[in-house]
Amino acid sequence: MSMNGTEPRKHTISVLVENKFGVLSRVAGLFSARGYNIESLSVGETLDPTVSRMTLVVGGDEFVIEQVMKQLHKLIDVIKVNDLTDESHVERELMLIRVNAEPQHREEILRTADIFRAKVVDVTQVSFVLEATGDEGKLEALIELLRPMGIQEIVRTGKVAISRGPKTRVRKAEPAKRPRVSDDPRVVGFAD
């Protein structure tokens, strides 16, 4: 149990970084050096080519996540850190999955793919490769349904996430978990 007694859970953290040499190893190194658990990490350029966005999924209680956020922000090349978990946002992951395609299963696999709006991107005598996107729950459900046919290999991109535009921002279902002392960065947040 942590200092403030909250349960560990997964957080989706969005990090804007300078698109500079070595920035990925700075972020990855931070996690290994401090013993934090990265579940997934994805990186890509933003509209501004000098800035990249990393989307991290990190497990931890509120106390650990607060330190993760602060430590990320402390890295000189990090411009902005945002915990999307309790904010209204959309998240997606891309998965490629190669599954056994015995004659007696081919129909069922295609039906399942259809329901999940997954595309068949490769077909052989003995296997299909499916491409699926979705949030974690959807991808997990697809895996479970295909498991009985025999999954040969799965490749996942890790999660990317984006906050919803201001107009569609809905009221949070539950109040923010973390009792913030203040929203003023000088109190406890980050410097800019």
């Binding site: 000189i76 090349d77 203040s182 960065p185 000088r186």
Partner: peptide, 10 residues
């Protein structure tokens, strides 16, 4: 833009 330490207390 990525490094602006805060000096004044709240």
């Amino acid at each position: 833009r990525s490094y602006n330490p805060n000096y004044e207390g709240h």
